[in-house]
Design a protein around this nucleic acid. Sequence first.
DNA 1: CTGTTGAAATTTTTT
DNA 2: ATTTCAACAG
Length: 702
Amino acid sequence: MPKDAAHDWILKPLNPPQRQAASADRRPLLIVAGAGTGKTATLVHRVAWLMAGGVDPARILLLTFTRRAAGEMLRRVDAILRRLAEKEASDEAAGGSDEADARSMQRLRSTRVWGGTFHAIATRLLRRFGKAINLAPEFTIHDRTDSEDLMAVVRTELGLAKTDKRFPKKGTCMAIYSRCINARQKLGHALKHHFPWCQDWEEELGKLFDAYVDRKEAGSVLDYDDLLLYWHALLADPKAAERVRGLFDCVLVDEYQDTNVLQAEILYKLCPDGQGLTVVGDDAQSIYAFRAATVRNILDFPKHYPDAQIVTLEQNYRSTQPILDATNRVIGQAKERYRKDLWTERGEGARPWLVHCEDEDDQAEYLIRRILEHREAGIDLRRQAVLFRASHHSMLLEAELSERKIPFHKYGGLKFVETAHVKDLLAFLRLAENPRDVVAGARILPLLPGLGPVKARKLMQTLVDAGGDFTAWKDFKPPAGAEKLWPKLVRLLVDLSGAKEGLPEQVGRVRKFYGPLLEQHYDHAQPRLRDLEQLEQIASRYRSRRRLLEQLTLDPPASTQDLAGPPLLDDDYLVLSTIHSAKGLEWDAVYVIHAADGNIPSDMATNSPEEIEEERRLFYVALTRAKNWLYVCFPLRYYQYGPRRGDRYGFAQRTRFLSDSAVELFQQEVTEGAGEDDAEDEGFGARVTSRSIRRRTKGLWS
DNA sequence: CTGTTGAAATTTTTT
DNA sequence: ATTTCAACAG
């Protein structure tokens, strides 16, 4: 089949603007794709189109927001190309030899495409080319928690823990540092605009960050920010830059609205003239400013590449007209954005619901009733999702779902690998992998009785001095209580660093040593021990220990179930997700909960107009996930906790993002308990329901 | 030095 | 609810 015919075949399922985007020439291309406009499909077809046009898949770089997104896209690319190959084969059944067919199939497999997040790709490139900028290729990677731990170590070492006024805590220090790196801002600037309450500490913070950077260097450790920073540095080195640039003919970036200045600069250096560069995004869905992402990247793209082509996708394939009307109304009140008018051919459907609930319990009750109704009507649980602003907003609902034995999967919030016991176990492997990783040592050693932070630090120093040879620890005289354990630990680490055993065996050995310690240190030991068993089981899937550690820090599974692998086809579960983690996904029925001012927008994010605008976009992202049914719920009463206010109920307002004119597009519903008891309440404050009392008291002991 | 206890402060979203 | 820090006992 001639190339043109193949190209036509690929473009056939697309609408005209999508076609234009998928088949655009090599000039820089910006695709502005509104919510639900087939952005992913367009990108997938563009990759297929490029490959069918002869671009070597191994010379295509696909940058996505999660690794899962990359995997999903490449699967779809493969599916298209497979069908194309089948068609070619049947069209030319007479002529083509089997061998030639096999070759063309092989050529068209997307497995060789470089796909992943900025961080994952950075890792891959740095392992390969790091030497050019004096980076040892066997560096280990710190996740956010590890980085904070190292920050805490340095913080105490510099005596910043015992200042008369309270010094910012480790998490805040890390956030400030991270902003400087990712937004390429001076400390003073970052403090002034984003952490004004820390401005008094500018000098000390500067010293802290210096020391922090030195410690990472000494330990041959990179944090998340370093991965980008070193990739950037790699591209600043003329010789290395040439080699890296030479790897790729085409670079495609998804979710461009959520990249930061550093990432944009990496792209500029990777594609100086923009040839072969495609970026896709929607400024109306930019929700990662807190991570230093900036809409300016997408807005300035045409300025940076004056010959850029811009294609706007406006036909929505996801939602019904009534839902689209409502979401358009919400985003229409945003201050500044690329003009887009989303429309759909999906015509009639149910208007979205605005549900007034009495309180949180009532909200949970309502949700479960609706969810089960939809399931009865044939909408599986997995086609429904409950979305919320903050991870803890779903706690009550989770408890209720568990009680009713309704299976669910939660995305966002604390991840499996971030739990203390999993981190502990991985720290053993990490220390074996990189004995200079002080944070790993500082985590493991104090698990032994009688060993504290000070001895741990000294031991790590002797280990580093011995060049990472764990036998150097044999001379150490352990404190009373650890005499039995100490030789075992040394033996374990010596064996692990020898790496003679397979990965599951290694995890098994750590588990045997660590299990009893876990029981001493943590509550609820049983489920934690089971997590470790599970980790041992899946260890065999990884090629190497380094690979396992790398994958788990760069692409942490959202839950234990996720870690276990793709869910079985027949098991059905409801999706609970933070709005952030719901990005790019869609469901038949979507329930947005806690849509009250203070939650959406979050009280923490109402300090500046920019923050409020971002919260508005966040709400918009939540609403636009819905295909057929959209419910926005908020409890009228919520329980206020905390030492300052005492234990009492407060009253909630509907989110400010649902203006009166937007509310007109909703059908309003008041749940049973809500609204009818205003008179009774007078003078008494809140009426407390029996359900609420049950809930609250349960909280006292579990 | 370590481990425990209590008081005080802070409280989001995530690669 | 969690983190941090000081105070105190062993």
